[in-house]
Simulated scan of single mutants.
Amino acid sequence: MGSPIRSASRLLLTMLAVSTMMPSQAAQLVRIGAAHFPPYTVRPESGADTGLLPQLVEALNASQTDYQFVLVPTSIPRRFGDFKQGRVDMAIFENPAWGWEEIPHTAVDMGLEDAEIFVAQRLPDRQQSYFADLNGKRLALFSGYHYEFANFNADPLYLAKNYNATLTYSHDSNLLMVLRDRADIALVTRSYLSDYFLRNEKVAGELLASQRIDQVYHHYAILRPTAPISGEAFAKVLQGLRDNGQMLKIFDPYKIALVPVPHNEPASQVAK
């Protein structure tokens, strides 16, 4: 039988260990859907920790201890089902108008804006007017994306017939088609083109980016009504990252604009 002092010491050590573990155990797990959407998320199903979303999640976790944010791989078409069935609690870099209208959710304005632009091969006599009319031009598009110039109709047959479009699953491939004169125009996000030029400095001078914008992406976080974190709480965490400069550090290099979040309106809204 052990001595009372030894027993008390063991009890004290156990209590200290439990108290040390409590903050991490108390943190609520928040699962964020990660669908391939470069440069925001890059091939999450492969386990690669690349893209802007992993950087944001790291900053979210480092800034507080109430919630533990984790990534759950999904896909562009599958993300709605995963959300409705509770496999994920949140979708990020979304917009309520992108198919979420009939799905109950809370939308949190992230105060981030990107844009879809047109890119062509740079030629001596080619000006911005080249992008004004798409008729007769061969387009390279990302399969499954909804483009404003096509009235957001993502049907491959419609795009091929009406816009002479080739659809792929790679922005790099689409830009390479333009460089090799297999397509006249590719559509990419401004953030992706910025990232592409960082990775391919030698071809930056060979491509002409349009001043014309197909559409502006104003990013929201979409939360399940029963998510472990409320819209108000998530908005507060994001504001903390704005205040400490982390949002600017993550997104500014990719020309993703930080824009004001309206304070005279609710930070979140629930679709009925």
Rank of each mutant, 00 (worst) to 15 (best):
L193G: 00
F69P: 07
Y169G: 06
F83H: 03
R212S: 10
E148I: 11
K161W: 13
K255E: 15
M22N: 05
W98R: 10
D66C: 04
A62E: 15
F251E: 07
A257F: 07
L12K: 09
A235M: 03
Q127R: 13
D125A: 05
Y147G: 08
L198W: 06
T168Y: 00
P96N: 05
T106G: 10
Y145I: 03
R43W: 03
A186W: 07
A186C: 03
W98M: 10
W98N: 08
H146T: 12
A183P: 02
Y40V: 02
A115G: 02
S170H: 01
S19H: 11
V18F: 11
R242H: 12
Y40R: 06
V18S: 13
L208H: 02
A140F: 00
G245D: 15
A204F: 07
M110A: 01
F83E: 06
Y169E: 15
Q128I: 00
F251A: 09
D114L: 05
E201D: 10
L207T: 01
L141D: 10
A227S: 09
F80E: 04
H219G: 01
Y169L: 13
F131M: 02
G245M: 12
A183Q: 08
P39D: 00
V261S: 08
R182D: 05
I32T: 06
D214P: 11
D66Q: 15
L139H: 12
N164Y: 10
D109H: 14
S173G: 11
K236H: 14
K84H: 07
A227M: 05
A26T: 08
L159Y: 12
Y196T: 03
L134D: 11
R10M: 11
G33A: 10
P96R: 08
I213E: 15
F69Q: 06
G86C: 12
L141K: 04
F251T: 02
D109M: 03
T74H: 07
A227V: 02
S230N: 07
R6M: 14
T65G: 10
S170Y: 00
M90E: 09
V188E: 04
H171Q: 14
E58G: 04
A62T: 12
A257D: 05
Y169V: 04
Y192Q: 05
P104L: 01
R242S: 07
G81M: 13
T50D: 15
L238Q: 03
T20D: 14
F234W: 08
P96D: 06
F69I: 08
V261M: 04
Y217D: 13
Q64V: 03
F93V: 02
S173H: 09
A35D: 15
L123S: 04
S210R: 05
